[in-house]
């Protein structure tokens, strides 16, 4: 009984954290971009504008809930839900920190993870792959031209980048020898020569290559600059969600940001040692807090790179994006897998 309760509480906490990550990320992005562009960004709602995303959310709730007359009603309503749920799903298997008994509150220590599946990584990929449907169906069901173009773009883009995204993580699976995210994280514990962490980015040169590939694909997968073609506002007005308003739009918006956080969290878990870091874990009662802190810090650093890219780079063109995906990223990830295999066989022999 108590176990069920613990799981329910964990679900609730992770879900809330993922949703609260969105307003934080929106604020963080606006602030960072603003300062890169010599502006101040939001300043009025709350101290340094921290409450601005909440104000925006309230505004969106009161907007007219518009239904285009020619839209396919069921699919039109379903699409944002699909986008949002699949985005949050990824958080169910990510380990956020080491085991803890919450300062002695619990008798048995619990892992800071909703559930540790032995196919954790596969669950994540199947969830994110489903996310494409949210976008495709949104574009199709709106029965309008700009959303259709946006949906077409994103189908092609996400289908082709999904492949390289999956392949880039294969080398990590080979190095860790498991699909369980918990074991992947634990395979990265410890230090080389006492100061270089044994993260997969440092464990082998192919790990680093795989990390770069994963991150590039991740940016494309989440439709962020410079791969933000499906919603390129200067070309397609608003892309696939042109016809969406009010909370349905907000759900797409949130899904995009949850996806960004998810991709960063997965990258942290797979390549950057998850919650491992100086002082994390161990026997001390506060070790799990430090571990959680490391995890959050790593995720935020990756999110910062996202924002940085957006502030700096122009957008690719649709065909160039496809060419880049198929002619560079795809072969490169295959080569990385091969190189990893060679690396491992050398280590073994």
């Amino acid at each position: 009984m108590i176990e069920l309760l613990i799981i329910a509480v964990k679900c609730l906490v992770v879900f809330t954290a993922a949703l609260l990550g969105v307003p934080f990320m929106v604020w963080f992005e606006r602030k960072v971009v603003a300062h890169m562009q010599m502006r101040l960004g939001p300043m009025y709602v709350g101290p340094h504008g921290v409450l601005q995303p909440f104000a925006d959310a309230i505004k969106l709730m009161f907007k007219e809930d518009f239904l285009p007359p020619q839209a396919n009603k069921v699919v039109y309503y379903l699409a944002p839900v699909l986008g949002m749920t699949t985005a949050v799903l990824a958080f169910s298997v990510i380990p956020f920190g080491p085991q803890t008994n919450l300062f002695g509150l619990l008798k048995e220590p619990i892992p800071l993870q909703v559930t540790d599946l032995n196919i954790g990584l596969l669950i994540i990929f199947s969830a994110t792959a489903m996310g494409v449907y949210g976008i495709v169906l949104a574009g199709w069901s709106s029965n309008s031209k700009y959303p259709l173009l946006g949906a077409l773009r994103s189908t092609a883009q996400m289908a082709s980048y999904e492949l390289s995204l999956g392949l880039s993580t294969v080398s990590i699976l080979m190095l860790a020898g498991s699909l369980s995210l918990n074991e992947i994280v634990n395979a990265q514990a410890g230090l080389y020569w006492g100061f270089i962490p044994r993260w997969f980015v440092f464990q082998s040169p192919t790990g680093f290559a795989a990390f770069l590939l994963y991150f590039i694909c991740g940016v494309a997968e989440t439709n962020r600059a410079p791969f933000d073609l499906p919603e390129a506002e200067t070309e397609l007005v608003a892309g696939f969600h042109t016809e969406y308003s009010s909370m349905k739009f907000a759900m797409f918006f949130m899904a995009e940001y949850v996806n960004m956080i998810a991709v960063s969290a997965i990258a942290t878990t797979l390549f950057l040692g998850g919650w491992h870091g100086w002082g994390a874990g161990g026997d001390t009662s506060y070790g799990w807090v430090i571990g959680l802190g490391w995890f959050v810090a790593k995720v935020i650093s990756l999110l910062f790179v996202y924002v940085w890219l957006r502030a700096t780079l122009p957008r690719l063109r649709y065909d160039q994006l496809m060419a880049f995906g198929w002619k560079f990223l795809f072969p490169a990830s295959l080569v990385t897998i091969l190189a990893t295999a060679l690396w491992i066989s050398r280590q073994v022999s």
Binding site: V33, Q37, M38, A225, T234, T312, P314
Partner: peptide, 16 residues
């Protein structure tokens, strides 16, 4: 022009 092609910051520098 840069904003249209997606380079967002250039616009704010120019307007400054």
């Amino acid at each position: 022009h840069a904003l249209d092609i997606g380079a967002m910051s250039v616009m704010l520098y120019c307007f400054r």
